[in-house]
Every structure is written in structure tokens, then in C-alpha cells.
Write a protein that binds this DNA or RNA. Structure first.
Lengths: 174, 174
DNA sequence: GATTTTTTATAGTGACCGCTACAAAAAAAT
DNA sequence: ATTTTTTTGTAGCGGTCACTATAAAAAATC
């Protein structure tokens, strides 16, 4: 998960993944079936843990604006990463990958996350849920990309604060 | 340029690039020196043409808010692309690339573009130019990523309109 | 302790990568 | 028209890719 997160799907080889896990290729394939098989498990583990910032923000309760603002703040705190693991694995892990299977896996995870955001927004603004969800997702994708390009937490937090104000205004009135 | 734009630096091979240009590998290396050499020329051509949406927006004049709003609208119109060339070549062309030379070339082009945005914003808001430029750049990176994930023009235009309102509000008052 | 089953390491599969040596063909110069 | 230079195509360089056949070691069963 860490290697995929740090360098992206294509840039990491099976031999290196095995070395990180302390196993050799045959054991790797016995355990995961394929490189994409491990990627799928990495995506699931990622989405099931603390990296799922929207789920964490949602768990703390509050109205939609509070949840979204908390999500953006968590993104700013998490996306700088450590050991090169910047940005979001789901959003950017298979970006520009030549492997259609990896693309499909990441795409499915993205759709799941985006749908969760949209559904929560729809509880307060059913008519504009799609547009508002797009706003949030574009903000997260942009922050993930900026983090991968080296943006630190301070810069991301400034952006997150502005995006939070934007979302509240857009949610409140047309 | 089109192949790099559509699939990213690593996913395109020299043989395929040569086939697109109607030349064989030896002629390719005689003309461009290396794969990264062609990528550099592609980035320059991209930034020198109509894909440099900020330069186009700036050329039409107006105050900072007008220029930024126009930039975001142009991004929404351009980023869906055609023949798979979605998003921005500079922002996403070397994303997750394993080649440090390609990364450095794209990074330099990004810095150049970001500096241009910051400098223009600084003419009206010198104190908050960095933060406001980050907001714009994150918006563009997010729209580029969303376009690469299949977002169409309509969705991007809705996001661009919201980001335009955000920028005007943030520029106007703290 | 002997036998069977599972797991692992060694080694290598064909395919593709960026890149290039070499020689044939085309162009230019004499 | 002959020679020289440039350009180009053929073929292949070493290297890495995801993946696997085979056989040795370890574990489990009898």
C-alpha cells in the first residue's frame, strides 16, 4: 500500500513489492494472484482505514457543511503524507497507468467515495447534490495533486479553509 | 504531444511516438535526442499554444477577477479534450512517472505557469497572492484530474462557476 | 521415522522498454 | 557521372516488466 501510494501503480514492480513484504515472486502470486490483486487489497485497506477522510469526518457528526469542512481539513492534514506517500491513493494511485485493470479498480473506488459524498450532501440539498459533490471532489483531487507536487500542510490548509467557505456559501444560497 | 497528453509520459513508447511521426527510432533520436527531449518540446508547444489558458485569459484584459474567471471557464471548455486528451498536459502529463527527467520537465513548466498566475494576482492583492494562487492552481489541478476521470464540460463549467465566485469573494475581502 | 503435502527459492519465460550499431538508400557535392 | 555526405531502415543491444515451471526445503500427516 505504501509503495503504490508513494509512486503509483505502474512505477512499482512486483519484485520490489515482494521484497517489501519479505516474500519472493512465487509466494507473491500464491498470496495475491496478480499485481492488480494486491493493488485491490491495498485500495480496500486504504479506504477502510484512517485515509478515508470523508468517513472519519462523517463519523464525528454535524450538518453537511460541518462534515465537508472537516473532510477538507483532514485532507489538508493527511495529503502531505510521509515517506513520499502524498495525496490520495484512490484518486492518484492509478493516474496515467497503462494497466486497464488497475484503472478500473481505482475508478470503482473513486465512484464509491464520490457517491458517498453526494448522498450525504443530498440529505440537505437534493437538487444541487451533484454540483456540490463535484465541487468537493474537484477540491480533493486538486489538493491531492498539489500535495503530490510538494505542497505542504500549511498551503493545503489555506486552500481547504477557502474551499470550506465556498461550500458553505454555495450550499446556503444559489 | 497528443500521445503524451492522452496517456501520460511513461505509458507511451518511443516506437509508438515514431510511428505517429512517420519515422523510425534512429531518426527519432537524431531529431529529439531522447524520449524526454520530445516531451520537452511537446510541453513547450503545449504552453505556447491555445492550451495555455491563463495566457489566453490574460490577453483579453480586464481586472484580476475577470482574468481568473475566464481562465477557469477556459479550463472547463478545454479539459474534457478529444481523442482522449483530457486535462492539462503540464499538470498531469508526467504524473506518477518513473522518469526523473520527465518529472523535472513537467515540474519546471508547472512552476512557470503557477508563477505567472501568482504575479498577476499580486498586482491587486500582493499580500494574499500566494494563497489565492494556490486556490486557483488547486482548482485547475482538480478540474484536470476530474476531466481525466471522465468529467464532461457541463460538470466542469458548474465547478468553474463556483470557483469563480469563490475567488472573487476571497479576493474582495478576507 | 517415513511419507505426503505444502511452501518456498532458483531460475527463466516471452514481451517490451529506451536506445543504438550497422549497412543500405537517398541526397548533395564535386 | 562519380564520390562524398547525410539520412534512414533493419536488427538487436542490455535491461526490466509481470509472471511461472521446476525442484529443493519445510511442514504436516501417518
Amino acid at each position: 500500500m505504501r509503495l503504490f501510494h508513494a509512486r503509483g501503480y505502474d512505477a512499482v514492480g512486483v519484485a520490489e513489492l515482494g521484497a517489501e513484504l519479505g516474500i519472493k515472486p512465487p509466494s507473491f502470486y500464491a498470496a495475491f494472484g496478480s499485481k492488480a490483486g494486491l493493488f485491490e487489497r491495498a485500495l480496500r485497506r486504504y479506504a477502510a482505514g484512517e485515509a478515508n477522510i470523508f468517513a472519519r469526518a462523517l463519523a464525528e457528526g454535524g450538518d453537511v457543511a460541518t462534515v465537508i469542512g472537516r473532510t477538507l481539513a483532514l485532507a489538508a492534514a493527511l495529503y502531505p503524507g510521509q515517506n513520499g506517500t502524498a495525496g490520495c491513493l484512490v484518486l492518484d494511485g492509478a493516474r496515467n497507468s497503462a494497466d486497464p485493470e488497475a484503472q478500473a479498480l481505482a475508478d470503482a473506488a473513486k465512484r464509491e467515495g464520490c457517491a458517498a459524498v453526494r448522498d450525504v450532501i443530498a440529505t440537505e440539498a437534493p437538487d444541487r447534490a451533484d454540483a456540490l459533490a463535484d465541487l468537493v471532489v474537484v477540491a480533493m483531487m486538486g489538493m491531492s495533486a498539489a500535495a503530490r507536487d510538494g505542497a505542504d500542510r500549511e498551503r493545503l490548509e489555506r486552500v481547504a479553509a477557502m474551499m470550506d467557505r465556498t461550500f458553505r456559501r454555495e450550499l446556503a444560497g444559489a
